[in-house]
């Protein structure tokens, strides 16, 4: 057992101030904590809680407006009665949009798969072994996360032009894998920090080969990290506009690129309808993967 694991157990057992109060309520024991002192920073309507609610409202308000107006009977932001006409248009009369959606989907799946495999392997290599180029790989995996997207996009555009790779689905795939890799690497590394090495020793002692240890012991136990990395990669790939904008070619428009071409001409009710569909999709993903949300928060 390493030190970190023990620390966590201790933390879980630590009594929360509110629980302390509940336990000592009514008892006149020596450890009774005056109620007002404990709750001073923990009031339901304290400053920080009010701020949190306001910020959440701020985050959702624009989305609510757009969703509401997706049911508007007419174009524009003047309410003219309820209608599903824009949903009909979205689902039955937006071939190009769905083609772009398909492209986004293909890129998201392929790039996140490759990024997950390469990133997870690298995390295992870096965390468990010491070798010369370790620091180099760690640095090079960190920078893409913090460089402004514009720079990554432009440098890739210039690179692909210089080596004469035609822009299209392949270049988008390469670009997305590149910006996804560091996130997967980071998430899996974090998971490996909590890893109990004795199970590898045990596997080796019981005669497992390197390959068997990897497939039957290591991979299953780092799976939560791998899954959150992959989830992160898929969402970032579906979301990306700036980098894709530079490395896409004719016929390879992804959904964000398509949305961009539409909103340049002002308010579009079909995009309103699309917003609701996308937000529902994301809510579903967040619900399905709610176990990983905390890990993901820690990485971004």
């Amino acid at each position: 057992m390493n030190g970190k694991g023990q620390e966590r157990i201790v933390k879980k057992k630590r009594l929360e101030p509110s629980r302390l109060v509940e336990e000592h309520k009514g008892s006149s024991g020596p450890y009774r904590i005056p109620r007002n002192q404990v709750f001073q920073d923990h009031r339901k309507f304290g400053f920080s809680n009010i701020m949190l609610v306001l910020v959440i409202l701020f985050l959702f308000m624009p989305l609510f407006v757009v969703i509401t107006y997706s049911f508007n009977a007419t174009r524009g932001m003047r309410w003219n009665g309820f209608s599903l006409v824009w949903y009909e248009k979205l689902f039955f009369d937006s071939k190009e949009l769905w083609r772009a959606f398909g492209n986004s989907f293909i890129i998201a799946i392929t790039s996140s798969l490759v990024a997950t495999i390469l990133g997870s392997l690298a995390a295992v290599g870096i965390k468990w072994y010491k070798f010369k180029s370790r620091a180099y790989i760690q640095t090079v995996s960190f920078l893409p996360m913090v460089l402004p997207e514009v720079i990554i996009g432009i440098s890739m555009l210039i690179f692909f032009t210089a080596v004469r790779i035609p822009l299209g689905m392949f270049t988008i795939f390469v670009a997305h894998t590149t910006f996804n890799l560091p996130f997967v690497f980071l998430l899996v590394s974090a998971r490996l920090d909590e890893f109990d090495f004795s199970i590898i020793e045990a596997a080796r002692d019981l005669g497992a080969t390197e390959m068997q240890t990897l497939v039957k012991v290591i991979i299953p136990s780092i799976m939560p990290g791998v899954m959150s990395g992959m989830l992160m990669a898929v969402t970032m790939s579906l979301e990306d506009f700036v980098i894709t904008f530079f490395v896409s070619g004719p016929g390879s428009a992804t959904l964000p690129l398509y949305v961009y071409s539409m909103i340049r001409y002002g308010v579009s009710p079909v995009i309103n309808a699309l917003s609701l569909v996308l937000i529902l999709g994301i809510m579903l993903i967040a619900l399905l993967f709610r176990r990983f949300l905390k890990t993901i928060a820690a990485s971004s």
Partner: peptide, 26 residues
Amino acid sequence: QVLWLALVIVPFWTNSLIRIYAWIAI
């Protein structure tokens, strides 16, 4: 915590162009 995290993450994961577009609409 998980509920609040989800409430922060859902808009965050929503396509950035859709979010900018929402502000244009407003």
